[in-house]
Amino acid sequence: MLDRLDLLVIGECVADIVRLPGAADQVHPGGSPANVAYGLARLGHGATLLTQLGPDGNGRLIRDHLTGAGVEVRTDDATAPTPSAAVTLDGAGRAAYTFEIGWTLGPVSLDRPPHHVHTGSIAAVMEPGAATVLGAVESLRTAATVSYDPNVRPELMGDHAS
Rank of each mutant, 00 (worst) to 15 (best):
A23F: 07
N58A: 10
Y97N: 10
T75L: 04
S84L: 10
L61C: 10
G120Q: 10
A92V: 06
R42K: 14
T98K: 14
D90C: 12
N35R: 08
L20G: 04
T104M: 04
H116L: 13
G54N: 09
G22A: 10
T82F: 08
H45P: 06
V18C: 06
I10R: 01
G102N: 13
P107D: 14
L89D: 08
R74D: 02
L110H: 12
G46W: 03
Q52T: 12
R63P: 00
A80Q: 12
D25N: 15
A15F: 05
G44I: 04
W103P: 14
W103G: 12
H65I: 00
L110P: 14
L49V: 01
Q52S: 13
A86R: 15
P55W: 02
V117K: 13
P81G: 04
H45V: 02
A80E: 12
P107I: 02
A47L: 02
G106C: 07
D16C: 08
T51G: 10
G59Y: 08
G31W: 04
A85I: 03
G59M: 09
D16P: 14
D16N: 14
G102L: 09
A47Q: 01
G120S: 11
D25A: 11
R94D: 13
P29Y: 05
V73P: 00
D111Q: 14
Q26S: 12
P21N: 07
W103M: 11
Q26G: 03
S109H: 14
V9C: 00
R19Y: 00
P107A: 15
L40T: 03
H118R: 12
T48L: 04
Y38C: 09
H45W: 02
L61A: 09
S84Q: 13
R112L: 03
A78D: 11
E12S: 07
T79R: 05
L50F: 05
D64G: 05
D25E: 15
L20W: 08
R63L: 00
R74K: 15
A37L: 06
G31T: 06
T82W: 04
A85Q: 10
G59V: 06
H115Q: 14
V87E: 05
E12W: 02
L40K: 05
L53H: 11
G120C: 10
H118D: 04
A15L: 04
G44S: 05
V117H: 12
L110R: 11
L49I: 01
A15P: 13
D76A: 10
H45E: 07
G54M: 07
I17G: 07
P21H: 09
S109M: 08
D64I: 02
V14D: 01
N35E: 02
G22V: 04
R42C: 08
D77T: 01
S109I: 03
E72Y: 02
L105H: 06
D77M: 00
L110N: 11
H118Y: 08
G68P: 12
A23G: 03
I17R: 11
T104W: 06
L110M: 10
L61W: 07
A80R: 14
V14E: 01
R42G: 06
A69K: 00
D64F: 03
F99G: 11
D77E: 01
L89E: 06
G54P: 14
P83G: 15
N58S: 13
P21F: 05
L40H: 05
A95R: 15
A92C: 07
L89R: 13
Y38L: 15
